[in-house]
Computed example of a mutant assay.
Amino acid sequence: MKEIGANGQVDYVEFNVTDIERSKQFYGDVFGWVFTDYGPTYSEFFDGRITGGFSSTEPVTPGGGPLVIFYASHLHETQKKLEAAGAEIVKPIFAFPGGQRFHFKDPDGYILGVWTEDD
């Protein structure tokens, strides 16, 4: 069971999606998320640390909102998995102080990032 985080920590991320099953397949295949369905219009995900949800009751807002960034211990391997799952890489791997990251577009058009620390 998920623990409640400390005040001010990111605790839940929710995506409006057009196809919940497609989103579950995409994120499950690439990141290994597990899901709990709550009816036909909502599925909760758990990534091992943070919980969130996929909802089909509101319009998709691709590219909007804050940039959600995932951590990956193997950046290039994760990029290959994303591309194999149909993601579009919209910003190739680049260095920043403390690591490297890239940005991708998921099946609903959300722009997300993946990072790893410097080797």
Rank of each mutant, 00 (worst) to 15 (best):
Met1Ser: 14
Glu3Pro: 02
Asn7Met: 14
Gly8Ile: 06
Val10Gln: 12
Glu14Ser: 06
Asp19Thr: 03
Ile20Trp: 00
Arg22Gln: 13
Ser23Glu: 07
Gln25Thr: 15
Gln25Phe: 08
Phe26Met: 02
Phe26Thr: 01
Phe26Leu: 02
Tyr27Leu: 04
Gly28Val: 03
Gly28Glu: 05
Asp29Phe: 05
Asp29Ser: 15
Val30Asp: 03
Gly32His: 01
Gly32Ile: 04
Val34Pro: 01
Phe35Ile: 11
Phe35Tyr: 08
Asp37Gly: 15
Tyr38Ser: 10
Gly39Glu: 05
Thr41Asp: 07
Tyr42Phe: 09
Ser43Thr: 14
Ser43Asp: 04
Glu44Val: 14
Phe45Glu: 00
Phe46Trp: 13
Phe46Ser: 11
Phe46Val: 02
Phe46Gly: 04
Arg49Glu: 15
Thr51Cys: 08
Thr51Gln: 14
Gly52Glu: 02
Gly53Glu: 01
Gly53Asp: 03
Phe54Ile: 04
Ser55Ala: 13
Thr57Met: 11
Thr57Tyr: 06
Thr57Glu: 06
Thr61Ser: 06
Pro62Arg: 10
Gly65Phe: 05
Gly65Ile: 14
Leu67His: 08
Tyr71Cys: 05
Leu75Ser: 03
His76Gln: 15
Glu77Val: 02
Lys80Ile: 12
Lys81Cys: 08
Leu82Val: 13
Ala84Val: 12
Ala84Pro: 01
Glu88Phe: 09
Ile89His: 00
Val90Lys: 01
Val90His: 09
Ile93His: 08
Phe94Gly: 11
Phe94Ile: 13
Ala95Arg: 09
Pro97His: 05
Gly98Phe: 12
Arg101Asn: 12
Arg101Gln: 10
Asp106Ile: 03
Pro107Gln: 04
Asp108Ser: 06
Tyr110Ser: 09
Ile111Lys: 12
Val114Thr: 02
Trp115Val: 13
Thr116Val: 04
Thr116Asp: 13
Thr116Gln: 15
Glu117His: 10
Asp118Lys: 07
